[in-house]
Design a protein around this nucleic acid. Sequence first.
DNA 1: GTTTGCAACAAACGACTGTTTGACGGCCCC
DNA 2: GGGGCCGTCAAACAGTCGTTTGTTGCAAAC
Lengths: 221, 221
Amino acid sequence: MLKRSFEPARGRWMVPPVNSSGSTKERILGAAEVLFAQRGFDGASLRQLTAAAGVNLAAVNYHFGSKDKLVEEVFRRRLDALNERRLAALDRIAGAPETTLEDVLEAFIRPALDLSHDDSGALFMRVLARAFAEHDDTLRQFLSANYGHVMRQFTAEFARLLPQLSKPELYWRIDLVTGALTHAMSGFGMIQRKSDVSEHTHREQTAQHLIRFAVAGLSHP
Amino acid sequence: MLKRSFEPARGRWMVPPVNSSGSTKERILGAAEVLFAQRGFDGASLRQLTAAAGVNLAAVNYHFGSKDKLVEEVFRRRLDALNERRLAALDRIAGAPETTLEDVLEAFIRPALDLSHDDSGALFMRVLARAFAEHDDTLRQFLSANYGHVMRQFTAEFARLLPQLSKPELYWRIDLVTGALTHAMSGFGMIQRKSDVSEHTHREQTAQHLIRFAVAGLSHP
DNA sequence: GTTTGCAACAAACGACTGTTTGACGGCCCC
DNA sequence: GGGGCCGTCAAACAGTCGTTTGTTGCAAAC
């Protein structure tokens, strides 16, 4: 495959440095996040993964049952925390008369942006975007079943703040905003942090651009 | 992998119906487009692919040299036509004083939407989105080297029509619009064509939503 | 002090991968 | 009519894949 062109000439595959902290399960989850982001779910093999985590090959099947279950666990670990924070932020403002569109978008975007602060969180965002692209029905069902209610609650609040929009119109706009957010947060695009701006500043700029863009896209006449 | 859960209980993998029209090369390209969209570049094996195309396993390496070259050829075949039409449409309006933002977006979006009219074209859109998500540097270099000039020409025209925007600001907005378009055109989102609207109508609605959304996102104060 | 159960390990399993090989027929050109 | 080329083919190559096995060390429970 194309990606393999970047492997070193000798040595079958790059073995990232062994992470020797935490339990076996945690080391596997950490290494899985990195490798799934880099090479995809199929592309990352259990042998690469366990070597990177510094654990035995059989440990994945022992602790998680199968590679598929490991994938689900990688998602669950991050998304539980992420969506909890999103809903908490939404709860603080939902239904209030002074709540603005910016507030709701802030509640949705900020936790994701905070998550992508540290390196492994940023990698997870790429894992998530990859999952969207893979169009895998099993995974989509898993995500919809476990986290669909989050999107529904945000949609309800958007509907309250944009009463002039018909339901199909609102769905369309939310859909397009979602695409823009996924794109931006997974670092697909050409926008990269300049070396002369701090990570914090860059994240703040990203949030500002995203929110203003989303407000415009959602509420245009 | 997760996707394999959907394979039939017996029989190693689905063999799509044999397409017996056209030359061997064309049959391979057609089958590759379908299978790459369904299962990804790594996920689709040459044995599935050649079985679906009704050709011998060795035919891929004979006609294309390798699986990687086949991937490139799948892209080249569609993107050459797509970007030619985009640039032709842009040429007709670029620099003219009466040209609007909608016109430029129309020139960019319409050819892609037309391509995704037939089933195989729509599949290719998913292949393209998958390629973005794969973050594969070799593939990105290939796309940038062969089709980067298209994006540059459109960006220049956007810059002319939005002189009030700083360069970074413009890049940000184009980036976010790109994300929304990719998302929408690859059929990621929740928006699906209702059974009571024709394919043509649905495409027209998609174009309208996309363009109005993009105009709002690009030109908001 | 023995038993029980968890965790880790090397080694092997069968299946599937992309690619290469050498043979075989059909076609055109000299 | 004979010599090349071209496309196709079955078969094999050398790997990698996810998963399973049987065994070990070690700690807590009885």
